[in-house]
């Protein structure tokens, strides 16, 4: 593959992630300011955005942070919140067969929800290239880190995201992605099972296990459907 076509794919990836990354800015700001309030230094929360790079896990652990940090409890919390990434990476794996092992190792490091969702969407219409994947990841990584750092500086001068409707941005993004994935009637039992199981699990057990519970319920519903017939064109 020529250099110019790699650069073209990188640019496509960056452009694709840009609106999503900009939507993440208020959350990065909030994370930075919340971290400082909980006694983490700007250097520490920046390090977390650099090497953990997982918004929901960062929010939850920062909200329960104490000093000295209970590292095992915090790591376990991050692990449980991120269990959904087992399903996400398993689903993405066959679409990246042409990536080298070293590239897959880096892909996994950068596999935030938004990166995963955008690349799954891309895989529906086009083979994912390393240029495209790392373009999307680069865009989110830089903006997420910059927003985190800015949040530590701006602190309490920031408006709460819900006053400007920004807390709904991710829900809206994920809804529009689900409508993209749910093209045929076969998606209906998947979406309904996932919805029912995740709500039930959350109301009974609380916590963050509801994502995996809903994901598994949707997968079971899909497995129970009659095998897909290849229809004549």
């Amino acid at each position: 593959m020529s250099m110019s076509s790699v650069l073209r794919d990188v640019r496509l990836g960056v452009i694709g992630i840009l609106p999503i990354a900009l939507a993440a800015v208020p959350f990065g700001l909030l994370l930075g300011s919340e971290a400082v309030r909980r006694g983490l230094s700007p250097a520490e929360i920046s390090l977390m955005s650099m090497i953990v790079f997982a918004g929901s896990a960062q929010f939850l652990t920062v909200s329960i942070w104490s000093h000295p940090a209970p590292w095992a409890a915090l790591a376990l919390a991050a692990f449980l919140i991120n269990l959904r990434h087992v399903l996400m990476s398993a689903s993405l794996s066959p679409k990246l067969k042409h990536f080298r092992s070293s590239q897959k190792a880096l892909v996994a490091f950068l596999l935030a929800d938004e990166i995963w969702a955008l690349n799954e969407r891309r895989a529906m219409i086009h083979q994912i290239t390393p240029g495209f994947y790392f373009g999307t990841a680069l865009g989110l990584y830089v903006i997420w880190l910059a927003a985190t750092i800015a949040g530590t500086v701006l602190g309490e001068t920031l408006p709460a995201p819900e006053t400007i409707g920004f807390d709904f941005v991710f829900a809206a993004l994920f809804i529009s992605l689900v409508t993209g994935f749910a093209k045929t009637w076969r998606a209906l039992p998947v979406v309904i099972s996932s919805l029912a199981a995740s709500l039930l699990f959350k109301s009974v057990f609380g916590g963050t296990g509801f994502i995996v519970a809903g994901g598994l319920a949707g997968m079971i519903a899909a497995a129970l459907l009659p095998p897909e017939q290849k229809e004549a064109p």
Partner: peptide
């Protein structure tokens, strides 16, 4: 089941 992961997991995240 694996093909259903995107729709199933995204739905669960926002439910």
């Amino acid at each position: 089941a694996l093909d259903a992961v995107p729709a199933a997991v995204l739905t669960a995240v926002i439910a």
